[in-house]
Amino acid sequence: MTQPGAQALPRIPAGRRQPFHSSWQVKLLALLVAAYAVYALGQLDFSYDRFIRGLDNGARFLSRMFPPSYKNWDQLLTGFIESMEIAVLATFFGVLLSLPIAILGARNLMPAWATWPARLIVTLCRAFNPVIVAIVFIKAVGFGALAGVLALVVASIGFVGKLFMEAIEEISMKQIEAVRATGAPFLSVVTYGVLPQVIGRLVGFCTYQLDANLRNSTMVGIVGAGGIGGALFAAFQRFEYDFVLAILITIIAVVLLGEFASNYVKRIFHV
């Protein structure tokens, strides 16, 4: 005779009773990271004493920044106009060059012999910080805005090129197939099948890149590649901290303005 209670639960092997995985590899990795952080702090002479003294210096530095001084406003204006020009030119040429590179690099449109060189170019463009690229271009074309523009064109290709390539790889191939089936040449497949599917996102990338270039253009000036960064660095060296603050405030204002502008552009294009 079978009783209801006799229907025992099936025996589960001990190893499977644990509801969650616990991996010793993850624990070991966390331990190693923590140990390395402590070691690196010691190596870099990062002590509590220095930290406290640093805070003190920082406070004195900040107090010397107030009130911001706009008496050199003409220097500020020239610097910003140049920065703006660097950002716009770099975005324009950067995006223009990104388009063919991204199409060549998209694995759903192109064979391997085209994709890997295009991907290599994009990876190289992303490999270095714009400041380092700017230093290289200063050696090549001399001090000034041209080096800044070239450095940011490279950065733009690295960023827009990569994102655009990924956007193209996500498009619906059904639409491409239909355009191909009409006997359209490749360039027409691109303009009628590929671009309509990605144009909205491309506008988004461009505005984002303009925003990034505006910020970066203030930075490449520090190494002598034109724009407001040069004035900022000079002011630091002359200990004109009140002018430094004036420049910093203006940079914040310009970046915010850039953000509003890109939102506005996105609204026009319905993205």
């Binding site: 619906s172 059904k174 639409q175 197939e177 239909a178 355009v179 009628y192 099948g193 309509p196 599917q197 144009i199 909205g200």
Partner: peptide
């Protein structure tokens, strides 16, 4: 699935 280019 018609395969029209949706945004055109």
């Amino acid at each position: 699935e018609y395969n029209l280019v949706e945004r055109l």
